[in-house]
Each structure stands twice: as C-alpha cells, then as structure tokens.
C-alpha cells in the first residue's frame, strides 16, 4: 500500500499541491485526473523523490519515502515513468532496458527475455536506436524499462500523450493486465480522463492542487458535475 498524507508542495510562491491525501492499494489502478496545472505531475515527482514537499509525507508499506533521494526510492520498488517517457534516444532498445535492470542483482539476460516476451516488438528491435521507435513503441519501452526492475508500484505520467486512440486503447488494456497479474500498484496520471476511467478502479480528481474527489472510477465517470467542471468532458 502506497499513500500520501496531507502533502503540500510549492515552487517558490506558487502552491502546486495543497494537503493532498490518498492511498493506492496493490492490484488496483488509481487514476489521478485533472486539468493542466492541477498538480498531477508534481504529485508523481514528489512520490518518486524528485521534488521535496513542504509538508506531509509519502509512505510505502509503513516506510516513509519522504526525504529519500530518487535513486533510493526506486530501489524500494517505486518505478516512475516520466512524462514524455524519458526513453534515452541515443541508446539502443536493449541498452535502455539494461539500464532499467541495473538495480537488480541477478544477471540481466533472463530479465530482458521476460520483457521481450511481454512486448515482442521490443525484442525485434533490441539492437535499434530508441530514437527510431514510434510513439507507442517508446511508451512500451519506457514501461518495460520500469517493469524490468520488478517494482511494487508503477507511476505512469500521461502514457497516452501523443498516441493515436487505437494505440491508447491497447496500452490501457496492457496496463490493466499487468496490474492484475502482478499485484502491482498503479498510479496513472492522465489528462485523457475518458480512457483512464475505463480501466481505473479508483479516481482521484485534482483541481488547483487540491483533491476535489476520491471515489470509485464508475462513480466519477457518472458524476456530471466532476465531468464538466474538473475533467472537461463535455460529450459522453
């Protein structure tokens, strides 16, 4: 169980998060939704240690993560796939994956094969430069690179950004499968509320850094007020 407790973050005078509290259970997808500037990315960056909160704490299974460096937090099993995917274009597909496997002590070979089995297209292109991959393939590579370290928690920042609707649907489907089969805790930040709500168990809605809703996904999807004012979903 990963959770945040009255988390407040500020960049100088700008308050990005105000007393955000929620928990994300294992084997479930928790979607974090909201408009541009609602604080979604800041939330993930604070959980993974890139941003220090002004107040509040992040905890994972009773342990406090706040105050630790990102490179330590990832070793505790929290994998963050950043916005824009963070694939290193100058590296080959395999080098990207090897980098992700670095924090595991066992040999990288079987770990790589496991990911190639999961994402066959990556196996076909393992020697290619990551820069040659399509947007969807890059997202797969970024996820595989995070999963190869066998995390307990997966933080996904806007995975659907720039993807075609078909590709997005496939991607959401595989996130669903992964989460269920590995008892993974997934925190999914999305601007595309519609496709996120389709696979999420719970939805947390942020507005100007505050939690305005924290409810089962179907409820949020049905709530006309939330849909209109906070999620910008006009037609259904």
């Amino acid at each position: 169980m990963i959770g945040v407790e009255s988390l407040s973050v500020a960049y100088g005078a700008v308050q990005a998060l105000r007393e955000v509290t929620f928990e994300a259970p294992p084997g479930r997808i928790t979607a974090v939704l909201g408009a541009n500037g609602a604080g979604k990315t800041t939330l993930l960056r604070t959980i993974s240690g890139l941003v220090a909160p002004r107040e509040g704490r992040v905890h994972l299974g009773g342990e406090t993560l706040t105050g630790r460096a990102p490179e330590e937090i990832v070793r505790l099993g929290v994998a963050h796939v950043p916005e824009g995917r963070g694939v290193i274009g100058e590296f080959t597909v395999e080098e990207n994956l090897r980098l992700g496997a670095m924090i595991r002590r066992e040999p990288a070979g079987p770990l790589l094969e496991e990911q190639y089995a999961l994402f066959p297209v990556l196996g076909e292109r393992r020697r290619q430069g990551a820069v040659t991959l399509s947007g969807g393939e890059r997202q797969m590579l970024a996820m595989a690179r995070a999963l190869i370290a066998r995390p307990r928690v997966l933080l996904l920042d806007e995975p659907s950004l720039g993807l075609a609707p078909m590709v997005t649907a496939q991607l959401m489907h595989s996130i669903r499968d992964l989460c269920a089969s590995r008892e993974l805790t997934v925190i999914l930040v999305e601007q595309n509320a519609k496709s996120a709500l389709r696979i999420a168990d719970t939805a947390v809605v942020l507005y100007l850094g505050r939690v305005v809703a924290n409810a089962p996904a179907e409820e949020v999807a049905r709530d006309e007020r939330l849909r209109q004012y906070y999620l910008g979903m006009v037609e259904s």
């Binding site: 990102p70 070793r75 100058e90 980098l99 370290a149």
Partner: peptide, 24 residues
C-alpha cells in the same frame, strides 16, 4: 561495462537516470 552504461546515461539524461536508480 555497466559502469559505462550508467556514465553515459547520467550524462545524456540525468533526471531519467536518477529515476532508474543511477547515482548521478
């Protein structure tokens, strides 16, 4: 070497490298 991979990653993408556990 693994060290070389880490060194290159840290130079090319410091923040991503930290998220993957590289001590930049």
């Amino acid at each position: 070497t693994k060290l070389g991979l880490r060194l290159r990653a840290a130079a090319l993408a410091p923040e991503v490298s930290r998220l993957l556990g590289v001590r930049v």
